[in-house]
Design a binder for these strands. Sequence first.
DNA 1: AGACTGACGGTCT
DNA 2: GAGACCGCCAGTC
Length: 109
Amino acid sequence: MSKYQQIYQVVRQIPLGQVATYGQIAELAGLPRQARLVGYALFRATDDTLEVPWHRVINAKGEISMSPLREGMDYVQRSLLESEGIEFDSNGKLNLTRHRWQPDLTQFG
DNA sequence: AGACTGACGGTCT
DNA sequence: GAGACCGCCAGTC
């Protein structure tokens, strides 16, 4: 299985109403310190042939990673999270301590 | 085959 | 707090 597949597999397990950071996904996927790969993988996952809740992955600052190359999908991401009950402050950040996914580590290595 | 490119994050200055 | 450095995948041309 490719590294991207490992990443998608972890992202698929993030529950509704919770979020994970790129670094957190990388670590759970067995790719420590390679948060960037998660970003690469998700960039290619948005055209959804896969059932991956890509909107539940945000950066370590608790913000949505913005880019014009996402063609508005970053704003869609915020809407999706809000529709799951997550609130953003005036700086565009959400409360990570409150919403961060805490996975059952026994199912990962 | 090789160059280019894109949702990051920890560490150090 | 902000900016620089660096790790190093996979699709496209």
